[in-house]
């Protein structure tokens, strides 16, 4: 007897916390380090990733029974790349200032492991609506973590939030907070706290203290 199909609501909710792509699966780390020093850039990047993950998961799930196994990953990359280029064109046309600020980051959504991870790991084996919800959930789950990290890095590193100064003008900027290593530290701290909160069984092979 085959397992019951995943419902869209459970697919969405699972990605927010239980299977959060950043905190649990540790995917999408490159962009987590790269863009989280500015909240505005993080937000735009997150919206782009939500759009890409949701659309590519939906399309892959619709085509899943027709995609030949030999070329499935190539097809997935092609579809993901198409949606990312669509985002880039729309930003260039309607939000040119933000497009200039984000520079190469939007294009890098193509290489974000979360997008391909959800298409290959979920959309290829599930119904379109569930895949759409899973893609949306993965994007939103990723965004919540990134925005939380950015909300710490930008004030400490630049004294501002969303570009608006919020700390005194004599605030000494923590330069390390705007470069990639602090992204590692912040992310590691968030993962540590999340796992403390989640509790649960220790990792297989972990030695007791």
């Amino acid at each position: 007897m085959s397992p019951a199909p995943v419902t869209p609501s459970s697919a969405f909710r699972r990605m927010l916390w239980e299977d959060n792509p950043v905190l649990v699966q540790t995917l999408g780390i490159c962009s987590t380090l790269a863009v989280t020093n500015l909240v505005k850039n993080t937000l735009i990047m997150c919206l782009g990733l939500i759009f890409t993950t949701a659309c590519s998961s939906l399309v892959i799930a619709v085509l899943r029974d027709r995609i030949p196994k030999q070329v499935r990953m190539m097809v997935q990359v092609l579809i993901i790349a198409a949606f990312v280029i669509v985002i880039k064109i729309l930003l260039d046309a309607f939000l040119p200032d933000i497009s200039r600020e984000l520079g190469p980051y939007v294009g890098l959504i193509i290489t974000n492991c979360i997008v391909m991870g959800r298409t290959e790991g979920f959309a290829m084996g599930n119904r379109p609506l569930a895949a759409l919800a899973d893609g949306l959930g993965a994007g939103v789950g990723y965004s919540l973590v990134l925005l939380a990290i950015a909300a710490v890095r930008e004030p400490l590193g630049l004294g501002s939030f969303f570009g608006v100064p919020i700390l005194p003008t004599d605030w000494t900027r923590w330069n390390i907070m705007v470069i990639a290593p602090s992204g590692f530290f912040a992310l590691a701290t968030f993962i540590w706290v999340a796992r403390l909160v989640k509790g649960g069984a220790p990792r297989p092979g972990a030695r007791p203290a």
Binding site: P68, V71, V75
Partner: peptide, 14 residues
């Protein structure tokens, strides 16, 4: 044929 078709559709979209 499938690969060519997908490429044409999504390349055309972009």
């Amino acid at each position: 044929l499938f690969t060519v078709a997908v490429t044409i559709v999504f390349g055309g979209l972009v």
